[in-house]
Amino acid sequence: MKTYYDPDDLKKFGKIKDFQPELGEKFFDYYGSVFEEGALTAREKSLIALAVSHAVQCAYCIDAYTEDAMEKGCDEEQMMEAVHVAAAIKSGSTLVHSVQMMNKYKQLSM
């Protein structure tokens, strides 16, 4: 193993069942159901997945959902807007915690 990330490993995702078939099976059933067309379209779900992939910084997921979003008919503008949503929530989440910092600061200050 020369690197931590290998693009070819993405194709082996299904192999996680080798070490624990029952839970692996349940996971993939669930995963498949989540992405089916429902109250949200498959395209909307793909864009959400793309945004979350960036938020959790998963290289495999970014690869997979960039391609998936293209195959769902999304263009580069829509995809980048989805990533900005993730970025806004991540930065917002950082900044909203500063309220706690401010609270603590005030509590400790005269």
Partner: peptide, 14 residues
């Protein structure tokens, strides 16, 4: 037809 190395989206939705 896709402008690249990917498969086409669902026809009706597109």
């Amino acid at each position: 037809n896709p402008s690249g190395a990917f498969l086409p989206p669902d026809q009706l939705s597109l």
